[in-house]
Design a binder for these strands. Structure first.
Lengths: 319, 319
DNA sequence: CTGTTAGCGCTTTCAC
DNA sequence: GTGAAAGCGCTAACAG
């Protein structure tokens, strides 16, 4: 179905079809003609063909989000953000689509012709550079200043711990090389808060991946650092593993040691003890980010917003 | 950057550029010319413009996955499936992109021009019909015969329970109207297995959403049905909530009552007791599904594969 | 072996 | 108020 078909069906020219459909201000079409066109559109179920439109316009309304894998998908915070961003962009005439940026698909999916690309990688990382090379359009970080954001989460955890009267802080993460830099950064932040409160140095606990390994890691860690009285975990999942390990070891939470997560995943209310955690407020960021993306699409320059640094404490039983 | 620019830069015609780039078999281009073209492409960082290509071809290489929300994203099974499907389609020259099919965005995202649409809804559901109406291309269910699949999971749970010597089965799910049909279906399947083993009727437990409500629901249920000795949960998350409720009530798992989940989410190893669950094998389905999608793109008719019905039991402490 | 040319469907300027 | 025509960038049939 093309505009031609509609024109024939309605007995008018192709231009007239366009005037009716796009409500062209320079052309007032008499109602009977107008109606014939609209009827024809309905009857033929005509939908303009996107590629032709994009070719004419020179650009599309598609915003492409590239994430390395779906690890971000199972992260509740990221999915909330993506969902909210999609809605916010929609109301600005843009369409958010999501694609996995795998090793396999080295084809930059030319057919997509996005007007702007959002990369889950940070500027400077290989995936970000690759996106910049592959797409002849602006590439923005999907999670701007993620490091600052996660560091702020760590600081919020530490402040929560100190505020609760804990004095010997530890930081815990999974023992994965890929996470190393991020862990160092967050731990640094926790150390900063500890130092500001004249507390001793912050120790790092790297947790094994199986339950047995997790138990062994935690046991050894607490033997070596017996005065640690609170553990700030990388996220709620790590916190959950620590709770499991503590239970296996007969270590009491929160009396012997407190545990604090990040994200406020739904399961946090169902652990034993229930998980204390911190959670960001993303709503104002999302709108600002959508505005920024809109501006970038319009060719404007300028800095975009960064992820927020304020976190809300969710106090439950584990601290 | 257009092919014109490349042609000028290389000092050849536009057609020659095309012959070089697409390695046209009917035209052997001498190496020096060839090299000049390739150099020009590199120098100008030329990338063909997708929309023009699609317009010419009449169709794109984009497969659009529409999901109602991101509830599927936090479902590990679904994300595994999407990831694997994306890779499988990539190797067949197709590109999978994902878009949220929200109420907000009533614009059928015309710019996307997919060659086929995958809907998370099942044929017959409103979202599926909407996709069919909005897109002038074939629409397939993204999770073909999901009901059969989930029913098979329920059957696997029941068989696992019976195999372990349990005789009074219950089925548990969250108390949400949207899930009602699916819950009924799965419960039916559990009932079938029970009946086949000449066991008493299967009771249904609808769990409240907060922890307190969950405890109350479970307590009341077990008071009313004191001989129930195993609970098959809708999924691992529901199973986890049941474990929490049981702990709060001082009900011993698995001695007093066993608990079985579905999905084998990573946290299952870290609950107390660790969660027994069942898990599907999706690998062969993914390849078959990708083949089918490829065929549909090529205009062929025919039935596609269905989600598998065989599940692997993961035995841990909760049964 | 290389170049010219027509046309995909949509939009818009210009002429009637 | 309506229509004719050109052109976006890419591709492919056809001519040279």
């Amino acid at each position: 179905m093309t505009d031609r078909d509609v024109a024939v069906e309605a007995g008018v020219s192709r231009a007239t079809v366009y005037y009716v459909l796009n409500e062209d201000a320079n052309h007032r079409i008499p109602d009977p003609t107008r109606q014939r066109v609209l009827d024809a559109v309905d009857k033929l179920r005509y939908v303009p063909f996107g590629p032709a439109r994009m070719l004419r316009r020179g650009q599309s309304s598609v915003v492409l989000l590239l994430t390395h894998g779906l690890e971000h998908a199972t992260d509740r915070v990221a999915t909330d953000l993506v969902t909210a961003l999609g809605a916010a962009l929609e109301s600005r005439g843009l369409h958010l689509v999501w694609q996995i940026d795998g090793e396999v698909g080295r084809d930059p999916s030319i057919d997509l012709a996005p007007v702007v690309v959002l990369s889950s990688a940070a500027p400077g990382e290989p995936d970000f550079a690759r996106a910049t090379a592959d797409y002849p359009v602006p590439v923005l970080p999907a999670f701007p200043d993620l490091d600052r954001f996660t560091a702020a989460a760590a600081a919020a955890q530490a402040e929560l711990a100190v505020g609760a009267g804990r004095t010997r802080l530890a930081y815990a993460a999974l023992d994965e090389p890929a996470l190393e830099r991020s862990v160092a950064l967050r731990r640094e932040k926790v150390s900063g808060v500890a130092a500001a409160g004249r507390l001793p140095a912050v120790q790092t606990l790297l947790l094994g991946s199986t339950r047995d390994e997790a138990r062994a890691s935690l046991g050894a860690f607490l033997d070596q650092h017996p005065d640690v009285d609170v553990i700030c975990a990388f996220n709620d999942e790590v916190a959950f593993r620590i709770l499991a390990a503590a239970r296996d070891l007969g270590i009491e939470v929160p009396s012997r040691v407190g545990v604090i997560g990040v994200d406020d995943l739904p399961f946090g209310a169902f652990t034993t003890p229930a998980l204390t955690t911190v959670e960001p407020d993303l709503s104002s960021f999302v709108d600002a980010f959508a505005d920024h993306i809109r501006r970038v699409c319009d060719g404007e320059e300028g800095e975009g917003p960064q992820l927020p640094t304020s976190f809300r404490a969710v106090r439950r039983g584990s601290l």
